[in-house]
């Protein structure tokens, strides 16, 4: 029965169907594995950064080294008793960052102050400039120039950060010092200003999207009410979109928070605990970038730098999550 031509055809068709089915299953499986791998990479990043910083808490030697109160006569006894609180005390109870010394000091405060100083300057300058530029692109520039200005602004986003850092260090620092009259050539304000150049293209694009996606009919209706452009902006668009603008600002904060090269080159890298914008500053990211090269693997310092990385990653994750939520929440009614 199976050698009739009709059934042979059917069986060959069945076989090709089988092959197709197998191919489908394999391909979908591979695609699925790809998706899985993306999740895997994220999990790996989080877990490895975390586990490498864990010895600060779990390893008695590191705890001992972190301890500020060395009992030299009773070193061994002490090593068993040095607690997590000693580690925390070193990180939060004093204000010095001196990783390579007899008694290593790892205070987080100067780094926090430095990060705050520099990102504050970057976000404030970036937000103001991008906000006004986006308004110009959406409302005020001559129509022919709008697209050109947009493209040129986006050009800034393609500029490598090391180039901006280099220009800040070699070129802008001298002129900035002449203008502002600061004692230090490299300071937090310079680094923040250079950093704002990386924030501007992102935020301008975001703001511009917000304004150009605003319902056109409402703007036309407002024009029919006889309102000026500035009245439309201040009384209709800004009240309806301030949440999104805030979220965009948060996103810019998240971006400039983890930027390394510009800060490493322009900030002077002085780990000092104050809020003086004319003084040097050192951020979490720049600390990792500057010190990771010379560190001994498995050392207290090594673990500490991974802890800084963990702080960075968690903070950016939270900031991003919040701003995504905010952007989704504030939709136009």
């Amino acid at each position: 029965m199976s050698d009739t031509p009709e059934s042979a055809k059917i069986s060959s068709r069945n076989q090709s169907m089988k092959k197709r089915k197998l191919e489908e299953q394999v391909a979908i499986g591979v695609l699925f594995l790809g998706g899985l791998l993306a999740v895997g990479i994220v999990l790996a990043i989080f877990s490895f950064i975390f586990t490498e910083s864990l010895p600060l808490v779990t390893d008695p030697d590191q705890r001992n080294e972190m301890s500020l109160y060395h009992d030299t006569e009773n070193e061994e006894e002490f090593a068993r008793t040095a607690s997590v609180f000693q580690t925390l005390d070193n990180m939060l109870g004093q204000i010095m960052w001196q990783p390579v010394s007899e008694q290593p000091l790892f205070s987080l405060w100067p780094l926090m102050a430095g990060t705050l100083k520099i990102t504050l300057v970057a976000v404030v300058e970036g937000t103001i400039i991008s906000f006004l530029t986006a308004l110009a692109i959406a409302f005020y520039l001559p129509k022919r120039l709008r697209y050109a200005v947009k493209v040129i602004t986006e050009l800034l986003a393609g500029m490598p950060t090391v180039v901006l850092g280099f220009l800040g260090l070699i070129f802008f620092a001298t002129y900035m010092q002449e203008i502002t009259g600061t004692t230090f050539r490299l300071n937090a304000f310079l680094a923040g200003t250079m950093l704002s150049l990386t924030v501007i293209p992102i935020m301008t694009t975001l703001f511009e999207d917000i304004y150009s996606s605003y319902p056109k009919e409402q703007i036309h209706a407002a024009k029919c009410c006889g309102l000026f452009d500035y009245q439309i902006i201040t009384s209709i668009i800004i009240p309806a979109t301030y949440g999104k603008v805030f979220a965009a600002g948060l996103l810019g904060f998240g971006r400039s928070f983890g930027e390394t090269m510009i800060v490493l080159m322009c900030s002077g890298n002085a780990a000092i605990f104050n809020m003086d914008f004319a003084a040097g500053a050192r951020t979490f990211a720049a600390t990792i970038g500057a010190e990771m090269g010379e560190v001994i693997v498995g050392d207290t310092h090594y673990s500490m730098l991974f802890l800084l990385g963990f702080i960075l990653i968690v903070t950016t994750f939270v900031i991003n999550y919040l701003s995504q939520k905010l952007i989704r929440k504030w939709t136009y009614a």
Partner: peptide, 10 residues
């Protein structure tokens, strides 16, 4: 206008 246009958030 053709469609009613209330201002959002007002």
């Amino acid at each position: 206008m053709q469609k009613p246009v209330p201002f959002s958030g007002k």
